[in-house]
Nucleic acid binder design. Structure first.
Lengths: 211, 211
DNA sequence: GGTAGGCGGAGAGATTTTCTCCGGTTGGAT
DNA sequence: ATCCAACCGGAGAAAATCTCTCCGCCTACC
């Protein structure tokens, strides 16, 4: 693949990530084109339709996410520190986008399930270790962690996004949320699992390929 | 005003709130019409254009928000309890919508500034009291509180919204975030003020009427 | 310096959105 | 009970937006 083609591909994926995050999975591809600063021909040549673009984006993000989780575990000795490092990295990677777009607009095939399973396992490892070390309350599940990340790291709506041009605010509020994970101020009851999140995000009537 | 007219008005405002929250302030008014279950004529007769609808919605929400803050203070003796009760009530009222739509699509006139000032003062009272009682960490400002509420109480994107059909999840995660407000896990530095939020949300080049 | 592959943009056609007008219906005063 | 002013929903025209193709120029690599 030629260098300029690779560069375009990267710019399109990054732009698509932002746009889908801000305007939902039905956002006009025109908006992606504009944000990426490429011509429409360039997008449609590489990604024949919306599905192809979404699939490429999701695969890319899940891969980087898994990598981030593994690196966090490797770099930080302390389980809670590892979780914290990962959550911040996930925000930088726009983890939210993966989830937003992941299941609603996509037929989940075997390849995607495998990639997703890898990511979930890596993150579950981090969360489990932090919980075992007593640094995360027991009534918080993977579902809570993921949804909290989605909620806190989504771009703020409209003009408020300008407040967080450099991402500092997201990290600030992630730390606030993480502090909430540590300290119980009353019980939450049963932790929210990840399976329920998957089930809710899936297209109606679709089994999700072997789950 | 006739009873059926009032009923329609209420349904339109409620629908608009949901739709703007889910799809941003540029969401098609058609979508509002459909969700409200009224005809297009009904919407356009009462609200000549988008601006009129947004203005009515914001005014309505800010009023109810102020009321909720005052009631929380009245009902709960404990300052932290009052703050907590208010935050949950604000989520039910879709406080996020007020902020989302508030300043970007709206010329802020004197009336709106007055209503907004009332709301801000009421909430500031709650937050200040909780902080004075030592129940909220000192490095959390009004801006943090508001943005955290916006973030956590926004509807989840796409199909994930189904997870929270009854609103229980929002309340769960609000409690998680509130726990983070209480317990410092490392300093955040300077609290985020509300003025900065207002400034960011305002339309570019618009003074904001006397602020 | 040649060339295969990539690039951006103009624009046709389809879809969506806005907003008006009108015939039928309903709430509420008498 | 009756009347009528006010309100309602929907069909549809006009405008805006979105999708996607084709083509002439450019540029990365050999």
């Amino acid at each position: 693949m030629r260098a300029d083609a690779e560069r375009s591909r990267r710019r399109i994926l990054d732009a698509a990530c932002e746009v889908f995050l801000e305007r939902g999975p039905d956002a006009p591809l025109d908006a992606v084109v504009r944000r990426a600063g490429v011509g429409p021909g360039t997008l449609y040549r590489r990604f024949p339709d919306r599905e192809a673009l979404v699939r490429a984006l999701v695969t890319d993000l899940l891969g980087r996410l898994t990598e981030a989780a593994e690196e966090a575990r490797r770099v930080e000795g302390d389980p809670y520190g590892a979780l914290r490092r990962f959550v911040h990295a996930a925000a930088d990677l726009r983890m939210g986008a993966a989830i937003v777009v992941l299941l609603e607009r996509l037929v989940v095939d075997e390849e995607l399930v495998a990639v997703r399973r890898g990511a979930v396992a890596a993150v579950e490892g981090l969360l489990g270790a932090a919980r075992d070390a007593g640094r995360v309350r027991a009534d918080v599940g993977m579902g809570d962690l993921v949804l909290l990340c989605v909620r806190v790291s989504r771009p703020l709506p409209g003009g408020l996004a300008a407040l967080d041009a450099d991402g500092a605010l997201v990290h600030r509020h992630l730390d606030l949320a993480l502090a909430g994970l540590a300290e119980a101020g009353g019980s939450l009851g049963v932790p929210l699992g990840f399976d329920e999140v998957i089930a809710a995000a899936g297209r109606p009537g679709e089994p999700g390929v072997g789950e």
